[in-house]
Amino acid sequence: MANTGSVSSEQTHRRPVRWYILVFLAPATLIYTIFAIYPIIESLRLSLYEAGDGGGVFVGLANYARLFGEPLWADQFWNAFKNNIVLFLMHMLIQNPIALALAALLSVPTLKGAATYRTIFFLPTLLSVVVVGFIWQLILSPLWGVSPAFMNWLGIGSFFKPWLGLESSALITVTLISIWQYVGIPLMLFYAALLNVPEETIEAARIDGLNGWWIFWKVKLPLILPTLGLVGILTYIGNFTASFDLIYTLQGGLAGPDYSTDVMGTFLFRTFFGFQAQLGDVYMGATVASALFFIILIGVGLYLFGVQRRLQRYDS
């Protein structure tokens, strides 16, 4: 440090320590490591242990063998996994197209009142699941009568069913409620992406004689493909981690009827923290959590190395 004035030739070859990199990275890395990674690892580590006298006993992968080997566990696991996949596909096929369509309409330049619509569409997303769960249970309640009465008015009253209570329809109903609530998020992402499409590109297309519909398909959509990919992967992750709250609120910890709405989140919660007569088992809970972690890891890996690369190539 003393010879700042006379920089030796050796030092010019070596780069100076770039402290600013540390300054930029340290705060986020520290908070994240202490308050997210450390506690999670503490938990996941438990998947290699089982309850013993005065603490855990190391058992290697025995818990995983139980999870996938014993019908009691494996049945629950695959049932929850299957439901999660249904949930994910329905969000991809219903939520995201609706969000894209609404975003496309909102981004029409001459549209009046876009800000008002935007606020309204985003409103359900802001609500707590406690509120959303309560509202929809009331609306769909066969007793309270809003939806039966409405359907009678439309002349299709005989089609009303206690949807949340039937094994055949409970999962679909829960998913539709989730879509109602969360459609605002992909909507916002698509909207922002559509607004960022350069005006000149659209103008050029218009001069080429394309109408609004074709401009959307041929010009805008390819340009927002990276956002589509992002929404896809966020839907995938959210479907495994965020679906818990709504299902727990609507259908309870046993995810009835007969586990037909059980997802990884509710299965995990039940196992980890216990539910009523079932006592929490942190060791099996950690095992389920680790399995969940790997499922998400595989999905994100596929996205990062498959989809995203292709999209970027397309983009450039």
Binding site: Y38, S43, F272, A289
Partner: peptide
């Protein structure tokens, strides 16, 4: 730094 997206922190509640 993005690993945390994949696991809900709720799991680490006790620690």
């Amino acid at each position: 730094l993005v690993l945390g997206i994949m696991v809900p922190i709720r799991l680490g509640t006790v620690a």
